[in-house]
Amino acid sequence: MLSRLAPLGQAFAKLLEWVALITSALVTGLLVFLVVGRYILNWSIVGVHEISLVAAMWLYMAGALIASRRREHLVVDLLPQQLTSARSRARHQILVAVITLVIACFFAAWTYQMLAWGMKRPQTVPGLSLPLWVPQASLAFAVIGCVAYASRDVIAGFKSLAAASKH
């Protein structure tokens, strides 16, 4: 099943990288523009901070997903280092992935509730009149990715357990 999803996974990884590249450029460019505008040109444009914040929120969430994809989130790895056999390592991998998946589902529920309440009481970003769900949608994006990557890790864990049991 994982192999059939692989092209999709790669396309998503590319998307994450492009989001990171574009939003990094936006945040840097807008803040430098603010300095140049104020210090040299005596310009003031409404909403530069607000647009930077929208871009930054998407940068944060794309970055968090890149870390999930590469399994680079910070962990205390004292226990994993004690595990020597392939089987116990696979079991540990499954356990951590399942816990992560459950917690990611909570994250999904909270984000859903935020968006649902936002539909009831819609807001805009002051100074821009941009709907608040535009930056908030980055959290939904993160939720979907986190649940997907946690599921991937669960399946990968079972696969390595099966492989370890064969030997």
């Binding site: 005596n42 003031s44 409404v46 909403g47 530069v48 901070h49 100074g127």
Partner: peptide, 20 residues
């Protein structure tokens, strides 16, 4: 960063700046 503060202060002649 709230309408119409920026517009008002600019109309009063000042240069405005966005600072947190």
């Amino acid at each position: 960063p709230v309408f119409p503060f920026h517009e008002t202060i600019q109309a009063m002649g000042y240069q405005t700046a966005a600072v947190d």
